[in-house]
Amino acid sequence: MGKYILKRLLMLIFVIIGVVVLVFTLLYFTPGDPARQILGPTADDAAVEQLREEMGLNDGYLIRLGRYLYNLFFKFDLGNSYRNHYPVMHEVLSRFPITMMIGGLGLIVSIIIGVLAGIVSAVKQYTLLDQVCNIFAVIGASMPQFWFGLELSLLFALRWKLLPATGYSTPAQLVLPVLTLGLSGAANFFRITRSSVLEVIRMDYIRTARSKGQSEFKVIMHHALKNALIPIITTIGGRLGVVLAGSVLIESIFAIPGIGSFMLTAISNRDYPNIQGGVLILAVFISIIMLITDIIYAFVDPRIKSKFKNSK
C-alpha cells in the first residue's frame, strides 16, 4: 500500500511541475511586453527598459523558468497583476474557498441526482423511464453550461422572482449556481452509474441474493451498489475538476467573487499573470484531489490493495 501511495505521490509531483512549466511557457509566449503593460502606453522607452531589466524579462527562457519555479515553490509567489500590482497568489487563495464551496456543493448535487437516476434507469432498463432519463442526460451534456445558468437565472430570478439572481452569502443565493453546476454535471454520473449497475446486476452473486428471497430493494442497495460504486468513486476526482473549471463562467453570471470571476475579469483586462495564476492553482488543486480519490479508491477496493501487497 505504501508503495502504491509513494508511486502516485511521485507522479503527482511530476505532473504539478509539468503543469507549472506549461503555464509558464504559455505566459512566456504571450504577446505584448509586460513592462510596457505595467507602465502604460505613455511611459518612455528608457523607463520600460529599466523595468524590463528589474523584472528580469531580458533573461533567457530557462533562467526565467528557473526563477518562476523557485519563486513559486520556495516563496509561494506567482508574480503580480499587471493591472493593480496585487500579488496573484494572495488574490487567488483568498477567493479559493468561495469557488471550492460552490464547486463542492455542485458536485454533491450532481452525484446525488446522477447516481439515483442511474440506479433507477438501470433497474428499469428499456422502460420509458429509462429512455427519458437517458435523453435528459444527453440534453444535459449538450448545453453550454453558462447558457444553462443564464436561462435558470432568467426564469427563476428575473421572470418568476423566486430566487435571488446574484450573491453567495445566503443559502437562497446559492441555489441557482449550485443547481447549474449540479444538473449539468449529473449527466456524467448518470451514465457511469447506469452502465456500472447494469454490469453488476447480471452477476451470479446477485442471483444468489435474489434466490435467498431478499427484497429487490435490498439486493440493489446492499449487494449491487457496493460493487457498482467503485467506478463512480474514481470519477469523482476528475469531475470535481470539470465542475471547478465550469465555475469560471458560472461565477460571473451569479456575481460570485471566486477564482472564476477573478479570471474572467483578468481575461477582459488581458491581465495575463492573473489568468495563468488562476489556471495553475485550479489545475494543481485538481491533481491533488485526483490523487486523494485514487488512494481512497485503493482503500475501498480490496482487490487493488491486495495487488500491491503481493507485489513486494
Binding site: 507522479m11 511530476f14 505532473v15 509539468g18 503543469v19 506549461l22 503555464v23 504559455l26 505566459l27 509566449f29 504571450t30 504577446p31 475538476g241 470539470v242 471547478l244 473549471a245 465550469g246 469560471v248 479570471m263 481575461i267 488581458r270 495575463y272 489568468i275 495563468q276 489556471v279 485550479l282 489545475a283 485538481i286 491533481s287 485526483m290
Partner: peptide, 21 residues
C-alpha cells in the same frame, strides 16, 4: 507523460490559457 500533464488541466481551462496566450 506529456499528455498526462495536459490531461491534468481540465480542457476548458487549458483552452482559456492557450487562447489567452
Amino acid at each position: 507523460r506529456f499528455f498526462d500533464i495536459i490531461g491534468a488541466v481540465p480542457n476548458i481551462l487549458l483552452a482559456i490559457a492557450i487562447a489567452a496566450t
